[in-house]
Every structure is written in C-alpha cells, then in structure tokens.
C-alpha cells in the first residue's frame, strides 16, 4: 500500500524568510448556516473551538477552524483523524441542513516565517497586510500572483497559507522568488 504524501513532500527554502511546505493536514469543508445552534455546537464538539466570526481563524492544539465565506468553514486537524472527525460531524449534524466533506488532499499548506514574512507575502498579493489591518487570528482569502490562496497569521512573524494542491509547485516557486536572499523591502 502506498503512503499518502503531500504535494511537495515538505520542501523548504530559506531566504529572507523561511518557506516550508508543511506536509499532510486533515481539512474538512463545513458548509451550512453559521448562525445555527446545531452547527455551532458541532464545531465546538468536533473542532474544539467556538464558531469563528467573519474572517476569523481560531486554532487549538489539535487543529483549527478557518472562516472561508459566510456559509463555509475549513476545519483543520491531524491527517490521521480526518475520517473520524467527518463521521463525528455528520453524526452531530444529523437532521441539520449542512455538508461536511473531507478535502484534505485538495490543498497544500505552507508556512512562511521570519521578520520579513509580511514583506514576502505582500510582494505576491493585493491584500493589505499592514500590521494595523492584518494580524494573528485573522484570515484573508486572496490572490498569490495568478492563483487563489488563503492565509492567516500564527504569530506576528509567521503566516500559514494554503492553495490548491494542483498549483503547489507554482506557489512554492513564487514564495521562493519573493523570499530570495537580498530582496528585503523593509516596508513593514
């Protein structure tokens, strides 16, 4: 039996910021009415966090919940637990109009860290990443050069980021160029 592997097999690059592909992650798309008590309860029991507000990303020790749109959440968890969590969600949401799907292999997760991480991402996206506007706890779905991506801040100098797996190499190459040695901008 072949082992599941992530798109870039934990590739790394070190320039003015460190870029890592972080391997396999469990990801569950949860669609439904976010104001419904049943869905809030299911998120709390399965992901262990409260329902995120608009553009909020909440993380716990074993995963997290990322706000994707007014009717869509992305639940993150360890890759090995994803099937059990989808089953738990489906059980908790029986009779509720909602959809939970395992999409773990659809996306690739990167981490961009270092004091210049904001500069590196700002070279690639039109989103405003100034510290007054964007900080830990928030998520922004936007564009990374030619592809869609979502990113959030784990702390002041660390971004988590995901894009579709089919464009993982493109996104990694972009991040490598943006983080090339000697390409500091020093704007933020």
């Amino acid at each position: 039996m072949s082992e599941p592997t992530s798109a870039l097999n934990r590739a790394e690059f070190k320039g003015i910021a460190k870029v890592e592909e972080t391997g396999l992650h469990g990801m569950i798309t949860l669609r439904g009415d976010q104001s419904s008590a049943a869905i809030k309860k299911a998120v709390l029991s399965v992901a262990g966090t409260v329902m995120p507000e608009q553009r909020e990303a909440i993380f716990s020790d074993t995963g997290g919940v990322v706000w994707m749109s007014p009717d869509e959440l992305m639940l993150l968890c360890p890759y090995s637990e994803v099937e059990a969590r989808v089953a738990a969600l489906n059980e908790a949401l029986a009779g509720t109009h909602a959809l939970a799907v395992n999409v773990s292999d659809a996306r690739t997760v990167f981490r961009v860290s270092g004091p210049a991480a904001r500069d590196v991402l700002s070279k690639l996206t039109p989103a405003d990443l100034s510290p007054e506007v964007f900080g830990p706890g928030q998520v922004r779905r936007s564009r990374l050069a030619q592809v869609s991506a979502a990113f959030w801040m784990e702390d002041d100098e660390t971004f988590g980021l995901f894009c579709f797996r089919s464009v993982a190499q493109y996104a990694f190459d972009l991040l490598k160029v943006a983080a090339a040695e000697g390409s500091e901008v020093g704007y933020f």
Binding site: Q54, R55, S69
Partner: peptide, 8 residues
C-alpha cells in the same frame, strides 16, 4: 459585502 474586505 460578504467578506467585508477591500478587494482589489
């Protein structure tokens, strides 16, 4: 109006 962000 859904995300509340200024989108380019």
């Amino acid at each position: 109006p859904y995300c509340g962000v200024m989108a380019d």
